[in-house]
Design a protein around this nucleic acid. Sequence first.
DNA 1: TTCCATTTGTTCGTATGTATA
DNA 2: TTATACATACGAACAAATGGA
Lengths: 251, 251
Amino acid sequence: MIDVSKAPYAPGITVWRQIVDDIQQRIDKGELQPGEKLPSEGALASMYGVNRHTIRRALQELAAIGRLRIEHGRGSFVAATVFDYQLEERPRFSEWVKKYNRPGSSEVLEAAIIPLQDLPELPRILRYEVFPNYPNVAMVETLGKLGEHPVSIARHLFFGERLLGLVDDLQKGLGITASLKERGVGDYTRLKSTISAALPKARERQLLAIDNKSDPIFICENVNINQEGVGIEFSTVIYPASRVRLVYEPG
Amino acid sequence: MIDVSKAPYAPGITVWRQIVDDIQQRIDKGELQPGEKLPSEGALASMYGVNRHTIRRALQELAAIGRLRIEHGRGSFVAATVFDYQLEERPRFSEWVKKYNRPGSSEVLEAAIIPLQDLPELPRILRYEVFPNYPNVAMVETLGKLGEHPVSIARHLFFGERLLGLVDDLQKGLGITASLKERGVGDYTRLKSTISAALPKARERQLLAIDNKSDPIFICENVNINQEGVGIEFSTVIYPASRVRLVYEPG
DNA sequence: TTCCATTTGTTCGTATGTATA
DNA sequence: TTATACATACGAACAAATGGA
């Protein structure tokens, strides 16, 4: 909660700007957490010792620059941290981490060899007509985080005899990209991504730490191929829409 | 409802596949409407003159390819029609219409000249640093349909003195692309699209005919520029996620 | 379903300081 | 100096949305 040391306001700078700066600093310091509700306008007005209009002017500004979310009849809330995920031909989680300069992690939730026939998404996969018809695939499920924020649940399916060893590699602590390189897949590119949206199931909400029941998730189905055009990986990645935006930038 | 002319099944092709094709055709012809409930498995079995297992195999396949939704204890329902929207450097609604071979329409909901200052999204717009700083913009809101299905609500903001006349042009029945061409904007391309997701507000649900309260929408913010790199249009487009998937295909 | 308390949104009015012609 | 316009700040009242009893 906010504790205002009722200092007199500096002259020469408008009061509402000083309040904007103050609240922004409290957010940056972590004193105010993403999603947290601010006191009501009336309460803030008396805490800061100003008129409600002055508080409103400050809150409007903070909302305009994306630090707050104001909801009619409910209150003002500290905006969630948002990570822009770039749709690219060569998507790499490590690039994303670098962009936001936070400790990224990719925890393996599950890894197993699965018979092709058991895949519920098999008909969709076959329709792309790029994946080799091996009897088994390597399935790896990972939870991606940027800093403390869970940002993705990825279900990777790797096609090809050599890639089945990936499951072991990962349990030895090797990363996916590293293991692929080891196994002769140095470069792979995106053929297609199909994006849909839905509300999360219970497990997804829990893993992605989605508080608000009405926050949707993105569901991206990706087809990745090697330089010869052979399907290497089919992945289904779930992103929490409250924390991740997808960005398309041609060229 | 389905009326099966109990023809003998073609040899050489499995019966369940023939049933899949038959049901798929009925959906395509419009004989079965999106959301409609199919007869029970037992009823279908006797109608098609096959065992219930054969029907089940066919229904499983139809669900796997996304044409049906099977709900335990309720029945099978024709899946909503899904339109894939391609993220492209030169997006045109007309291309989308062509792809699905349906009568497309773009109804103008509202068109007006608006002072720049009154735009709630102004701070975000300015951050792109490509839009000229005219005092007014032309705002056009359109409802896009493919066949009978509403697929988009677009709020276009056009920047530049010459483009203010667009508002009049549209009320005369001219299309956006045509009017732009008239006004010297022959070619414009996408600089960036930012995609988020949320649940629709009441008005959006109504316009987009979204039945299910928990069906999310895509919100795409697009920045379009001309060949000189000057910002022409900032648009916010809403797609119903139950009916539209976004597709990214590099190259 | 209705009612009520809380909270934000909007619109009046008033007063003051500052920049500009 | 004067007049004007503008942004800032305060006060009060009511409208509209939300959530819980």
